[in-house]
């Protein structure tokens, strides 16, 4: 068949149409669902992010079982500290309402390191009106105890001044820091 004088135009236009259709199909297939609902992104990503697992609960969640500790903790100077900071996350401890793992309890020198995260006077950047700091080992010397003493031998970690205040009450000794 002899080609007509405008066959090249037809071929070009045909090519463009085919490319446009293929491009459109590719766009439909490859654009994720919910893309562009709010903007140039996948709207479902918001829901996915919102559905992430909560790992830290609250002190109220802990106190539902550990009422004794929670009660003393809530009355002491450490009441603003989250249980989960020292002990680990609730999600590691409880799954589907059942206990799955025992959380660590700090002992010995770990306690000292933990306490000094907040209470070390050597770190001058700590605002004095916010946190009571002690210098180590001066504090131990002043209290006439061995330098190997750990903090929790005098201070009950959940309510640090509970025992101290009781001792002051009983003996009448004045407090020295």
């Amino acid at each position: 068949m002899e080609s007509s004088y405008n066959s090249h135009v037809k071929r070009i236009i045909g090519g463009i149409v085919i490319a446009a259709v293929l491009g459109f199909l590719a766009k439909v297939v490859m654009t994720p669902e919910s893309f562009g609902v709010y903007g140039h992104y996948r709207a479902d990503a918001i829901i996915e992010e919102a559905d992430r697992e909560i790992r830290h609960w609250t002190n109220a969640s802990c106190s539902s079982c550990h009422a004794h500790e929670a009660n003393r903790h809530s009355k002491g100077n450490h009441k603003t500290i989250s249980c989960e900071f020292c002990h680990g996350t609730y999600a590691d401890h409880i799954a589907d309402g059942k206990k799955v793992k025992t959380l660590p309890v700090m002992t010995g020198d770990e306690i000292k390191t933990l306490c000094l995260r907040c209470h070390n006077k050597a770190i001058e950047a700590r605002p004095e009106d916010v946190i009571k700091t002690v210098a180590m080992p001066d504090h131990l010397k002043k209290q006439n105890v061995k330098e190997t003493h750990t903090c929790n031998q005098c201070h009950y970690v959940h309510a640090p001044l509970e025992y101290i205040n009781q001792a002051i009450k009983i003996t009448g000794i004045k407090e020295t820091i």
């Binding site: 919102a50 603003t80 989250s82 989960e84 900071f85 916010v130």
Partner: peptide, 23 residues
């Protein structure tokens, strides 16, 4: 950091705000 978007949507504070002992 997402400011704990998953917590905020459930009415909870971001975890860093929640655990901060000095607010």
């Amino acid at each position: 950091c997402t400011w704990c978007y998953h917590r905020v949507r459930k009415g909870l504070l971001p975890v860093c705000v929640h655990v901060c002992p000095t607010k």
